[in-house]
């Protein structure tokens, strides 16, 4: 959040209110101010399409605000009428009347001569898993399954540690080319991949997911993803062709241990 922009916006609106500016200025201030807020207050840029929707809603509200009161209506209309009618504004009116069509024409020119942009497929990052999967002939119900070795963390710390070491070996023989040495999704091949590899250090990934979900994603890879996930473009291998079930569960233990996150628990209904 860029607080200074927000504070400046609020301050400007307070000043305008205090000065009791005309309704036309007031409406314009809201439109411009909210546009600036949407564009510059948030650290993560708001998509243009979202801004368009918000600005549409804001315009409609302001429109309604003005139309529903004849006093406001008059106040709103008077400066416009004066601008159009009074002779002293004539040069400015001519300028505005020519500038608007010029802007429209320029916009059309820019659109028609722009370099085409490659189409973008908005894939679902964590698609819904199936009810169950079959890995190496054994069926696993994804809704209820848990890492069979998770309990060792308390019941047998020694064996748990051994499994972490085995998981580390699996990770650093197979996964780090893409997901990176630091598990931050920035492996040596990451720049050549689309979609980019998952960043396990991001609190929005494995920390939000259950171990069975990871197991599904690892065992079945991109080819096992539903259509909304874009199975044709992700480079995630179906690891069941390379790894045993045990190795996959071990590497999941290692992912959580290395990043310090806890898996989401199985929900008991």
């Amino acid at each position: 959040m860029n607080w200074w922009v927000l504070i400046a916006f609020v301050a400007a609106m307070l000043v305008l209110r205090w000065r009791r500016v005309g309704i036309l200025t007031w409406v314009a201030a809201w439109l411009v101010g909210l546009y600036l807020v949407l564009n510059y207050v948030f650290v993560v840029p708001v998509p243009v399409s979202v801004i368009k929707i918000y600005m549409g809603i804001v315009s409609l509200s302001l429109f309604a605000f003005v139309l529903t009161d004849s006093q406001r209506m008059t106040e709103f209309w008077q400066p416009i009428q004066a601008f159009v009618v009074e002779p002293r504004y004539r040069p400015l009116l001519a300028l505005v009347a020519l500038a608007i069509p010029a802007l429209v024409a320029f916009r059309i020119y820019a659109d028609m001569t722009a370099t085409p942009q490659a189409p973008f497929f908005a894939r679902t990052v964590h698609p819904a898993p199936p009810d169950s999967i079959i890995v190496h002939d054994s069926e696993l119900a994804l809704g209820t399954a848990d890492n069979p070795y998770r309990d060792l963390e308390t019941s047998n710390p020694e064996e748990f540690k051994e499994r972490l070491e085995k998981g580390r070996a699996v990770y650093y023989l197979n996964c780090f080319y893409c997901h990176g040495d630091l598990m931050a999704g920035a492996g040596m091949y990451a720049h050549a991949l689309n979609p980019i590899p998952t960043n396990f250090q991001d609190p929005g990934t494995i920390a939000m997911l259950r171990e069975a979900f990871l197991y599904w994603r690892i065992a079945k890879g991109a080819p096992g993803m539903p259509e909304e996930g874009g199975p044709w473009q992700s480079a995630m291998p179906a690891w069941e062709s390379f790894l045993t079930e045990e190795e996959m569960w071990n590497v999941i233990l290692f992912l959580y241990d290395f990043t310090g996150y806890q898996p989401r628990a199985v929900e008991l209904h």
Binding site: Y177, Y189, A192, G221, A222, P237, S241
Partner: peptide
């Protein structure tokens, strides 16, 4: 365009 090693399949 960047290339990467085919490590997805055998």
């Amino acid at each position: 365009f960047p290339l990467f090693g085919q490590i997805v399949e055998p």
